[in-house]
């Protein structure tokens, strides 16, 4: 899988023709420096900022912050494996349901191709 950038904020901002200062105003930041830091991957936005970005550019958060999404998906995949291993040690009816859920989760979060 090709490694995606941490975020594509700069790409989407440039497509709209907005400046960093204008995007900062829309995101509720005091000036463009914060937007510049997001674009240089020097700072990660808060959840509220990420959601505003989604509304602003009309693109899902997972697409704007693709690299972070990849990172989170990989971390989740590892934790799912860990939990599945723990569940194997305690077989019961309730565990079978949990395993089913984890299998569905695994197939849902299978690594996807580069966008």
């Amino acid at each position: 899988m090709a490694q995606r950038l941490e975020n594509y904020l700069r790409t989407f901002r440039k497509r709209t023709g907005l400046s960093q200062r204008e995007v900062a105003l829309l995101l509720g930041c005091s000036n463009g420096a914060k937007v510049s830091r997001y674009e240089r991957f020097a700072r990660r936005p808060t959840l509220a900022t990420a959601l505003v970005c989604e509304k602003l550019f009309g693109v899902p958060v997972a697409e704007i912050f693709a690299g972070i999404e990849d990172e989170a998906s990989e971390a989740l995949r590892q934790r799912v494996c860990l939990l599945a291993e723990q569940l194997e040690k305690q077989p019961s009816n309730a565990v079978a349901r949990k395993r089913q859920f984890l299998d569905a989760l695994r197939s849902r979060n299978a690594p996807h191709a580069t966008k």
Binding site: A2, L5, Y8, R10, T11, K14, T114, K115
Partner: peptide, 10 residues
């Protein structure tokens, strides 16, 4: 650019 013709920065 990415190979799928996605323009990242310019």
């Amino acid at each position: 650019l990415e190979r799928d013709l996605r323009l990242i920065d310019w």
